[in-house]
């Protein structure tokens, strides 16, 4: 028998007996960030590709979600801070090695752009909208003129944001479950997938819906591929990573992960989307909602299980 125990001293709240320093705020923040990144990515992409007119849902409607998601996400992040009065300290340094830092800066850049994007499309909702100040009108005109350049900036930032939501975890060697480079691409893919799901909900034409169902299907398949890869990586690795993987393979997170994330969040929507592509009549809301549900569960479960996985004791 091997018995290793902390015999005294440490029962620090939220650290012991297992780490639980990040509660709902961080996974929610990551979900919303990934979702916004996905939405903005497609909006920018199709603008660059010049298909803005035909894909109205993606380019004009869905992007309204982005600023809302980003602001809510930032607010969740703020709630997570335990020394909130010092929040501004985030913006007194740029620390490239700190995902938290460049995430904060990326958000600082992409959030105003998402507002601008929404503003450019505001007349879709309020046809009689008019900017009250002259300089705003000038600014709108300026933006419209440079919309392709702006789209490129958004495209790059949204990829950074999407990857960041995964890197935030995978940068932590300390948590064997997170310590895999697949987490970055996986979260990016998942973010794009949730973004596509939002677009499906906002899509204005059947054609658009089918396009995004197809995109989503591919993304889901890629995600599944990454997940399988991740587990193979863990199981071929050191004991601590095997232990980490076993949280999902018989351990306490098994049911939640396989039912909520893999089955309800990936397999079922994939099947439904495939059926839709095969011309069956499926209400688009269902797979899209499932994808969103799966996306949020995924982040919660990875956040919690990652904190449980450890090296010592």
């Amino acid at each position: 028998m091997r018995e290793e125990l902390i015999i005294s001293g440490r029962m620090n709240p939220n650290i012991d007996p297992v780490l639980h320093i990040w509660h709902w705020q961080i996974p929610l923040y990551l979900f919303l960030g990934g979702l916004a990144a996905g939405v903005l990515f497609f909006a920018a992409l199709y603008t660059i590709l010049g298909r803005g007119k035909e894909l109205k849902g993606a380019v004009q409607y869905a992007p309204f979600v982005a600023p809302v998601a980003l602001v809510l996400g930032l607010f969740a992040l703020f709630l997570d801070l335990k020394h909130q009065l010092y929040f501004w300290r985030l913006y007194t340094t740029i620390k490239l090695q700190s995902p938290m830092s460049w995430g904060a800066w990326t958000l600082l850049a992409i959030t105003p752009l998402s507002f601008i994007w929404a503003a450019l499309n505001i007349r879709i909702i309020f046809p009689n909208w008019d900017w009250r100040f002259r300089w705003l009108k000038d600014f709108e005109a300026f933006c419209r003129k440079h919309i392709i350049k702006i789209s490129w900036v958004i495209l790059v930032l949204s990829v950074i944001l999407g990857i960041y939501t995964g890197i935030l975890f995978s940068a932590f060697n300390a948590r064997p479950l997170w310590n895999t480079s697949i987490l970055g691409p996986l979260f990016l893919t998942s973010g794009l997938s949730t973004g596509a799901a939002v677009i499906i909900l906002f899509s204005k034409s059947h054609k658009e819906r089918l396009l995004f169902s197809r995109i989503d299907l591919v993304l889901i398949i890629v995600e599944i591929f990454f997940i399988v890869h991740m587990f193979m990586g863990f199981l071929a690795s050191t004991q601590v990573q095997i232990d980490a993987a076993s949280l999902f393979l018989g351990g306490p997170f098994t049911a939640q992960f396989w039912i909520f994330v893999v089955f309800l969040g990936l397999l079922l929507p994939a099947v439904l989307e495939a059926l839709e592509l095969a011309k069956f009549k499926i209400p688009a809301v269902i797979p899209a909602t499932l994808v969103l549900f799966g996306g949020i569960m995924f982040r919660f479960i990875i956040a919690n299980a990652g904190q449980v996985s450890r090296w010592l004791y």
Binding site: R10, D80, L90
Partner: peptide, 24 residues
Amino acid sequence: KCIGCGACITSCPYDARYSHPEGY
């Protein structure tokens, strides 16, 4: 300077840090 984001806590493989009740 600390905002209490908890990143350092999660990053330490030894769980050597804790969140002080005052926030930092």
